[in-house]
Write a protein that binds this DNA or RNA. Structure first.
Lengths: 336, 336
DNA sequence: TCCGTTTGGATAATCGTTAACCCTACCAAA
DNA sequence: TTTGGTAGGGTTAACGATTATCCAAACGGA
């Protein structure tokens, strides 16, 4: 059985409370007994029971991080950034991945609440207008911050990249590189993909270029999706000469399709991804992409959350949109 | 204040214990009161306080996962596999990443113990012969399983890939492809790198080839390290015609050096990595690599741990070495 | 010498649940 | 009528800490 404060107290002949005070450096304790207690604690290799402490202090120093999927490097980076930001404050991370299943997500959030996390950071996949999960969090008054994927209709903190700006940035870059027929391999039916699409459209309009519905291909987030989408585009009468892709995996899939078709990048088709996935600069043709500042997202979300946890009363919800950054590589670079 | 069992008990006019029994489906309760309790619980949106429960049951249903770094896709996959394996059993994951710093690792492990995790899965970076951290875990009798990196001198469960087999597999493959001067870009000074080196040497000896100390270049785990190492090799009188790399990032760095030098893969230099990193089949030259069965590691480690958590008495430590699998791609493929 | 103030610590109550017993009907068999 | 079993619940005491309150001894000044 693990050592408890009672064990120390008995050995040193003081009360448990005295031990507790020594260990927390609180209250008035004589130097003599302090030393005795500390020595005995070290001898016995005492470790606080945080569960017991949490029960009475109502603080677990634990933050729940709810992610769509671990494996994705984007969320891996988020987790790292969050972990590094909160650790100095004594917090730990209870992470759960719901594999893009909204029901699993809700049950995981409930579970984390039951575990009395002090706060939550969520990259949610709840369907539109389904706010029950969030209502439950709010009822508990547990502070939470949404990341990456905004949830419309919810008044909550949000930290994410400016997706419309990503769409504009990517498309404008293709325009600047001289592309005339610019297509978009769009992502799944979620807000984030729509915003990137809007950015794409806005950039075209701004440049007085026509919107061609055939140039917007629906899809998913994976490289197979990009592969299929690109093959579809290449079969059309007027294949595009520039493609802005929902994300890097999609772009990588598209790249495979382009190369397989015997075309060259960027002369025949220029390609822009988004996300700046690891190794996207080591592909057969290094991919121009848009960095979404993953670390900043995790960092700022953590800080926002820590503020709210520390605050006496609930603060106003705050939204932070991080401006993306374009990284030009060979997939769009002009030949010299 | 969150709803407690006491709230329900008062409303339904029974004792707290009765509520507890209903909620756990234990003890003898009449159908009538059961329904009353359940209804009221639902109405109030009651959520168990797991902290309180854990205090008395001495079970947190939480597993500590201690990893060198989140960002690395390998550990991301591990985390995913572990999470998926333990979730059905009601366990959650308290993950901490120690950024390859042994001291942070030790303090994180202590912290997880203090949080009363039911078990630990650790990919350790403790220096050789430094077993104090593990002793503390053992003293607490908290079951734990080591993964990926074995710790010599410690009698504990271990699950990992067979690194010597990786070394042999990769090297033998190069030999079979006709390479005569096979170098090795070895990793950092840890057991896992040494085992791969041993496998490399063993394969050469088995094929009656001479060991050339100049062909073994020390390094790290990153692509810069591979880049530098490969440049070093290329500067020698007799550059190698085949290189077995510690891992994929190193191989990717090496590939950059080779291409920059104007050489071609695999004709001039054949390259084998290890780890089967995502997208390593989408590089400028798709990389032959050795898959280390990441999912299996996470899955088997979790199962081993769950067994030990469930067992009444401590079971014998068990070691599981997973046989690796070679994936041939263009970086070693013979031209057709 | 007496009273007030520190000093250093003890006691009691609490956090929300569960474990281990105990109790009281009620019913059936002896 | 007595015995005894069972159904359905209540009581009490943990679990390992913290918070709030209280108390004795020592000390200091008039």
């Amino acid at each position: 059985m693990p050592v408890t404060m009672l064990d120390i107290a008995r050995d040193v002949n003081v009360s448990v409370v005295t031990v507790s005070k020594v260990l927390r450096n609180q209250g008035r304790i004589s130097e003599a007994t302090r030393k005795l207690v500390l020595r005995r604690a070290r001898e016995l290799n005492y470790q606080m029971n945080w569960v017991a402490r949490s029960l009475v202090t109502r603080r677990t120093y634990t933050i729940g991080l709810v992610l769509p999927e671990f494996a994705h490097p984007f969320f891996g980076e988020i987790a790292r950034a969050v972990g590094q930001t909160v650790r100095p404050h004594g917090y730990h991370l209870l992470i759960s991945s719901f594999e893009e299943d909204p029901e699993v997500e809700a049950s995981e959030v409930d579970s984390l609440l039951a575990r009395q996390v002090d706060g939550l950071i969520i990259a949610s996949a709840q369907p539109l207008r389904q706010l029950a999960m969030f209502r439950r969090v709010q009822q508990r008054k547990t502070p939470y911050v949404l990341i990456d994927r905004p949830v419309p209709g919810l008044s909550a903190c949000f930290v994410g990249v400016d997706n419309a700006a990503i769409g504009m940035l990517g498309t404008e870059h293709l325009i600047k590189r001289g592309c005339r027929r610019i297509a978009h391999l769009r992502g799944p039916e979620v807000g984030i993909a729509e915003q990137r699409l809007e950015g794409y459209q806005k950039a075209l309009l701004k440049a007085d270029m026509r919107l061609n519905a055939d140039y917007v291909v629906p899809g998913g987030r994976g490289d197979e999706s990009g592969y299929e989408g690109m093959r579809h585009l290449l079969r059309s009468n007027q294949p595009p000469d520039g493609v802005f892709c929902f994300n890097d995996p999609v772009a990588i899939g598209a790249m495979r399709a382009i190369l397989e078709a015997g075309l060259r990048l960027p002369c025949d088709v220029a390609l822009v991804g988004a996300g700046n996935v690891h190794y996207s600069d080591m592909l057969s043709v290094p991919l121009t992409t848009i960095d979404q500042r993953t670390c900043r997202i995790g960092e700022l979300a953590s800080k926002l959350l820590l503020d709210r946890i520390g605050a006496k009363r609930t603060l106003q919800p705050k939204t932070i949109l991080i401006p993306p950054k374009l990284l030009e590589r060979d997939s769009t670079r002009r030949h010299s």
